[in-house]
Design a binder for these strands. Structure first.
Lengths: 242, 242
DNA sequence: TAGTGGTCTAGACCACCTC
DNA sequence: AGGTGGTCTAGACCACTAA
C-alpha cells in the first residue's frame, strides 16, 4: 500500500503528480521490477480521484515504457532498467545535464538562399533566405561533433551568441517552442574536413544524425546534419507498442 | 467540413476510426500542412461523440507528430512530412514491408550459460541458460546486417525455423507479445569477422544497434546487438515534446 | 465467476490566446 | 469577450484473463 497522495491546491495537474510519485517509487525500488500496481479503480478511490484521471497517470508511464498493462491481468513494473532519455532536447543541454562542460566554436554563420534540399525539407520556396550554421562542439575530452544547421532567416537574430549558448536555448529565447522532430540516424566514414575537425583519420566511423524540427504552430524551424565521433556519442530511445 | 463519420457497429474503437480518417485526410492532402482542424467540441458534436473520445483521437495523432495543439489557438497539421515509422518491429518484417526479399543464414544457434553482460541486461541469475543466436541477413543487393541475439532458453523452440521466418515472428507464434524496447544506436569500425560477413573492408563504418525487449508481462525477452552496413540502413524516429 | 483494463458518455471549470 | 485546448468528475458497459 504505497503512500501516494495528491495536493489539490497545487497547479501541477493531478495525473502528473501521481505519475511522478509512481515513477519515484520505481526509481527508489519501492516498486520493484515485476511488481503489480493496485488496480486503477482501487487506486483512484484511495487517492480520491476519478478513474479517468488515474488512468491518465498510469498511461503516461506506460507510454514511456516504465509500466506494462494487460487487460484482465493488471499493471506491472517492467523488468530491468529502461533507458529513459531522448527527449526533444539539444546536445548542449544534454551535455550540461550529464555534468560535462561543452564548448562551441562557430565555424560558419551566414545568410543566403536555401540549397534545394534544405528548402524542400523546411517547406520553403526555393531561393528563400536561410541561415547556415556550422559549429564545432567540444567537451572536456576534446572534439565531439560537427554541427550543421539551416534555419529560416527570420528565426535567428544576427547577433545570437552561439559560442556560449545552445541553439535551442537561443530559439527558446526568441519565443520558438519546438514540438516535433523527425530524425534519421546513420553511419559514415568521415570525409577529410570532418575528420580533421574531430581529430580522426579520414574514413573513420562517425554517427550522422539528420533532424528536422517543427514548432507548436507546425512551422518547420530547423534542418540539422550532425556528425559525431563514434567513440563519444550514442543515441538512446525507447519504443512502446500501442 | 471534412466528411468524417464513425461506424458504431464496428469493433474498431471510435477514437481509432476517427484518428484513421484524420490521418488519411492528411495523407491525401485533403488536410494540408498548416491547416487548422475544427475545434474538439465542434468535431465531437458533428460526429456524435463525446469530447473525451474526440480528444483521444486527436491526441493519438499529436503523439505521433502529425498534429500540433496550442491552448487558446487550435489544432494544426504539421508542415512537412513527418517520418512515420520506427515501430517495435523486426528488421525482417520491415524489409518485407518495403518490398524487399530478405534471406537469412543462421551462423550460430546454441544454448548455454548467459555471459555476465547478457544476464545482467535480461535480469537473469548469472549462469542461467540462454539461447545465443547469430544470423546474417541479406537482401537482393547482398549482405545487410549481422544479427546477434540472446534470449532466455525457454522462449525459443529448439527446432525454430529461423532461415525462413523472422525472430519476432517465431516469438509471436510462441505467444510472446513484445511491448517495450530500449535501444542504443552507435557507430563503429567493423572488426575483421563482421567486415568479412558484410563484404566490407575491416574498419569500414557500421551502424550498431543494441536492443533490449520486454513483453506484456514486463519480462525481458531478448538482448540484441546488430551490425548494419552503413550504406544500407538508417534508423528513423519521431520525437514529440510533451 | 470475479477481477482487470479498454472504451465511452455528458457534462464541468479553468488557463491561455486572440481580437 | 469569446474561443480554444487542458483538466477533471462520476458514472457506465464491455472484453479479456485467471481461478
Amino acid at each position: 500500500m504505497l503512500p501516494f497522495d495528491v495536493d489539490r491546491s497545487s497547479p501541477v495537474p493531478l495525473y502528473f503528480q501521481v505519475a511522478q510519485q509512481i515513477e519515484a517509487a520505481i526509481d527508489s525500488g519501492t516498486l520493484a521490477p515485476g511488481d503489480r500496481l493496485e488496480n486503477e479503480v482501487a487506486l483512484a478511490d484511495r487517492l480520491g480521484l476519478s478513474r479517468p484521471t488515474m488512468r491518465q497517470a498510469i498511461q503516461s508511464l506506460v507510454e514511456r515504457g516504465l509500466l506494462v498493462r494487460r487487460r484482465g491481468v493488471g499493471t506491472q513494473v517492467v523488468q530491468g532498467r529502461v533507458r529513459r532519455p531522448v527527449r526533444l532536447s539539444s546536445l548542449h543541454d544534454d551535455l550540461v545535464r550529464s555534468g560535462q562542460h561543452p564548448t562551441t566554436t562557430v565555424l560558419l554563420h551566414e545568410t543566403g538562399p536555401a540549397p534545394a534540399e534544405v528548402a524542400l525539407t523546411l517547406g520553403l520556396a526555393p531561393g528563400t533566405d536561410v541561415v547556415t550554421l556550422g559549429r564545432l562542439r567540444c567537451v572536456d575530452d576534446g572534439p565531439l561533433a560537427v554541427l550543421h544547421n539551416w534555419l529560416p532567416a527570420d528565426l535567428l537574430p544576427a547577433d545570437a551568441d552561439l559560442t556560449h549558448h545552445g541553439l535551442y536555448e537561443v530559439l527558446r529565447a526568441q519565443g520558438v517552442h519546438l514540438r516535433v522532430a523527425s530524425q534519421q540516424i546513420s553511419a559514415e566514414g568521415a570525409d577529410a574536413e570532418t575528420a580533421g575537425r574531430l581529430g580522426l583519420d579520414p574514413g573513420a566511423p562517425v554517427l550522422v544524425v539528420e533532424r528536422t524540427c517543427w514548432d507548436d504552430s507546425g512551422r518547420a524551424v530547423e534542418f540539422a546534419r550532425h556528425h559525431y565521433r563514434a567513440d563519444g556519442y550514442t543515441v538512446e530511445m525507447t519504443l512502446v507498442d500501442p
